[in-house]
Write a protein that binds this DNA or RNA. Structure first.
Length: 106
DNA sequence: ACCTTGACCACAA
DNA sequence: CTTGTGGCCAAGG
């Protein structure tokens, strides 16, 4: 489906995403929780539709995986801003962000 | 009001 | 590692 472009939830999500510093990340659930919500999926839909002009690669899944379908492009950003990744899988597919070090809590 | 669709989450087997 | 189950929430049919 489509989210309303002027939904207050959408605006709030984008505000939070813009506040994440370089080299740090938040999970979809973290962003929702910051808004007092559990709508992690809606955060994902928000990023899918309106996240193009935001630092979308700083919002990842709870397991440390980058957003589905954007693994390769996200990795370029992580390398560029030195986001801590878990050791091991160095290839494009299969890597994860080290949440214990990179997680940002506002 | 019910069903379906998602850049999701947690937990169990 | 993989499925499956149940939960979450907005929007559209």
């Amino acid at each position: 489906m489509r989210l309303s472009p002027d939904s207050p939830f959408v605006a709030a999500v984008l505000d939070i995403v813009d506040s994440i510093p370089a080299g740090r990340v938040m999970t979809y659930g973290d962003v929702a929780a910051t808004l007092g919500s559990r709508a992690a999926r809606v955060v994902g839909q928000t990023m899918a539709q309106f996240g193009a002009d935001a630092p979308w690669w700083r919002v990842i899944r709870a397991g440390g995986h980058p957003p589905t379908g954007h693994e390769a492009r996200a990795l370029e950003h992580y390398r560029a801003e030195r986001t801590p990744l878990l050791p091991g899988a160095d290839q494009e597919s299969g890597y994860r962000v080290d949440l214990s070090r990179a997680r940002w809590r506002p």
